[in-house]
Design a protein around this nucleic acid. Structure first.
Lengths: 341, 341
DNA sequence: CCATTTTTGATGTACGTAAATCAAATTTTT
DNA sequence: AAAAATTTGATTTACGTACATCAAAAATGG
């Protein structure tokens, strides 16, 4: 049977009240007594029954999710997953609130973070915009003792407790190898469509992609990055333009969101071109394009997993418990037309 | 605030004791009264607080994992994950016992299942051997009201509540497309190494593989399947032999376990051959081979996820609750050397 | 050594549910 | 209509922890 507070009390030779004072860091315990209790806890391997504790406390974890107000399928999906978590709130003893901030706006994000300091939530999850002012705001929250996790996009050099997202350098490298292998030994140009080089995940994907391309596929050369600002129309225009101008293009890597325009451009050119295409994020559009052969592979991060993982980690941090690392690693999904969920 | 039993009692105009009788299916409640209470439960959306209930019951979920006594890396890994779950048992209120049965022995497995009927565990997870007698034994357990989930390998036509494993047809199809694309337009033979065609997951992988090969890569022809019985030495011998005899082989798909022998055979021939190789299951051996280029891609199922998912599902079934489907879908991992965990 | 402060113990209530007991009310049977 | 059986209510204890209160003991200061 699992040891209880009574067992600690007996083992340490103190009363229940003293054990309680130690466990909940209440004042009025001599140093030596505290040590005695802590030793007993360690020796008999006591772990607080979180369920019982939460019941007694009537606790609900109040978490805040800060998400960018971006109008693309991926962010809509992320929002839907947060809402699904909100729907599960009563059962999971969470009380989740979302805050929308303008996309790619470090100042607004930092301001939103600072606002939260006063209300002291039990945890904060944010899609980070990678900027010093955001990092500083996060660090202030962390200093205040608020658990913070980044989701989807990480924050360089910050003290956030956890990052619930994929390794974007690995994603870029994987894309490069897939594209390179799919193209066989063919020589030619590769077009890269990104949202913006101001976002860390996009930068990292490109970095990984370029590295493997240079190392292993010297026959392929990367054209200057097309920045489509995750906007379908802009992407359509820029990609159409590039495909018309450069007929040496045999591969495309789309590392950002907003693939609708890309797909339209590809279909228009598909009559006279055979292109190998790798894109990010599984949406209705990319799924259809994968099935009809317009796209050859999709790299994906599961927003639902990211949200649930973020919540689990925040809960664990709030309770001072550890997590199962393997469970919280967000995996890079690779979808071909055969293994779509 | 979440409704409690008191709220139901008030809403239904009955006493707490009656609500308890309905909730826990105790006798001594008239039909009309029972209906009144059930209506109230539905109307105010009451959900039993599982944490509080378990606390009151002093409940621990006693689960049994039936695993085959196979001596390969994958089953060792699976066992390790079950042991990790055992280690977490006190915190998770589970009491997990493992039962080893001889591999690929339907009779032994069915006997083990029938033994469990008398002890009525709160749930059973098994790596199924796909045979009618096993199916019948599982169905008997299910009829007794015991939640049953299959792990890794499923059971055709049974009434098991859930399958915690990958879609093996999709896995085979994915392997075929990867291999076909990696080989470009090359023509030649493809060798397939399996453990045994008596196992359902292996049969399904081959089925999916052959289908895509036939549909989409007519230039590649599949040689008769090599059955290595998941044994490294046997695999080594058979693969070496095949590679010596047929110099038209340009691709290899290893869909079973026991890849050590395959890798050795490949390395011996690698001086004069360029082979494209897809294998299943990430182990120390396959990981090394992927990194040094002997293997080109690894398809994997995460045993840890499977075990944790099985436990979550068993708990939910035992409590009559629903699960988050997306969370319990076991994904097919595709590893290239760039996205290894 | 006494007064004061700090530390410790003892005890009770609460959280939401389970489970049991006994009395009271209601229904069914005769 | 009385007796018997069934159904319902009222109440209590328990699970493991949190938290509060008050009294008792120990340590500290002068």
């Amino acid at each position: 049977m699992r040891p209880t507070v009574h067992d600690i009390a007996a083992a340490a030779g103190v009363s229940l009240a003293t054990v309680d004072r130690v466990l909940n860091q209440r004042p009025g315990v001599r140093h030596v007594t505290r040590e005695k209790v802590e030793t007993a806890i360690r020796e008999i391997g006591y772990v607080r029954d979180v369920a019982a504790a939460n019941l007694a406390k009537g606790r609900t974890y109040s978490f805040v999710f800060i998400v960018p107000a971006s109008d693309n399928s991926f962010m809509h999906g992320l929002n839907a997953e947060v809402m699904a978590a909100v729907a599960r709130s009563p059962v999971e003893r969470t009380d989740i609130r979302t805050v929308e901030v303008p996309a790619f706006d470090p100042t607004a994000l930092a301001a939103a973070l600072d606002t939260l300091r006063s209300e002291r939530p039990a945890g904060v999850a944010l899609v980070a915009t990678d900027a010093p002012e955001v990092r500083d705001a996060v660090d202030r929250l962390v200093q205040d003792g608020v658990p913070v996790v980044t989701v989807v996009s990480d924050l360089t050099g910050s003290q956030r407790h956890h990052y619930a997202g994929v390794d974007n350098i690995a994603a870029g490298r994987t894309a490069a190898r897939l594209l390179g292998r799919f193209l066989g030994g063919a020589k030619g140009d590769v077009a890269v469509l990104a949202g913006s080089m101001l976002v860390r995940d996009h930068r990292e994907r490109l970095e990984g992609f370029a590295a493997v391309m240079a190392e292993e596929f010297p026959g392929l050369s990367i054209l200057p990055v097309i920045e489509g600002r995750d906007d379908p129309d802009m992407a359509h225009m820029l990609v159409s333009d590039a495909l018309s101008k450069r007929d040496g293009i045999i591969g495309v890597y789309s590392l950002g969101a907003g693939n609708r325009g890309l797909i339209r451009a590809l279909k228009e050119k598909s009559v006279d071109r055979a292109l190998t295409v790798i894109a990010h994020e599984l949406t209705d559009h990319t799924r259809t394009a994968l099935l009809d052969g317009t796209i050859d592979a999709i790299l994906n991060q599961d927003a639902g997993h990211e949200v649930r993982s973020a919540i689990r980690v925040l809960k664990a941090k709030a309770d001072g418990l550890s997590v199962i690392d393997a469970q919280e690693r967000i995996r890079l999904d690779i979808f071909l037309k055969d293994n779509l969920p």
